[in-house]
Amino acid sequence: MWSLLLNTNTGWVLLSTTMLGIAAGAIGCLAYWKKQNLMSDALSHAALPGVVITFLIFQEKNLLLLVIGAGISALIGALLIQWITTSSRISEDAAMGMILSVFYGLGIMLLSIASRSSGGNQSGLDNFIFGQAAAMVRSDIRTMMMLAVIVILTVVIGFKEWKIYLFDQSFANSIGLPLKAMNTLYTFVLVVTIVIGIQAVGVILMAAILIIPAVSARYWTHSFKCMLIISSIFGAFSGAIGTLISAQGRGWPTGPFIVVVAASFFIFSLVFGKEKGLLIHYLHRQNQSKQYRVNQLPIKGAIK
């Protein structure tokens, strides 16, 4: 294990997936309370055609360029979902389902064209499907970390504003919060988080690292601030541990391992969570019925 860390590239990759986990854990909380968990899934799938088209145009695997392409394509997906929902009778989940599969299908189609045109080896472009953190070079990592820091700062600086935006939009608007600007900013940071994650986690599983840490954190706290922090910690450890495990085998994809680690945090939270965990619920019920029985005793005595 230590020899892995001493290998500088692995160290850097580890740091970047940890940062990604923090950013995804934080944005995941916003998505959770905006009730848009499926949206993040739709957007990450919608990013794939952008990645491939950018590669086809520039014929090089530069993460910054690919990220911009992915971002544009995800934003087009977001706009289409919004347009379908507002201009027709189609509901949002149906719109998301359509965009998700159509964009993903388009991405895979383009990917097979790309792989043929550039002679079999499409320079690891299919890594974007399941994620391959180890394939990232130093400049990719720099790009990714810089964007992750921007995302994290956006959430931290506007914490109080995000809170009221998520809790009570009409009141937020009545005290002068610019809702439209916040909606745009929210979509923007969500898309940025998704696109910086697609190389490490992949488009298929990216949504999981946005959704699972936030859902797990909900089991531990009744405070939005703590939920953000706990979710970021879960995200960070999922990213780090998943990357470490996937680095054990040659060519093991990173995304599935990160998701499995995140899922084990979820199961742990589900059972042991301090606020809503199953165990706490069980003990609480036991305690209540015990108290009830104790309270009954003196009454019995009085009747006698």
Partner: peptide, 27 residues
Amino acid sequence: SVDWDFPTDALDVVTMGLYGDIGWFKH
């Protein structure tokens, strides 16, 4: 119009009424 399951307490919700006074991005 709001989701009362949101993780916060009564005092915090009332404090939201003061956000205009507190100023943007300040605690």
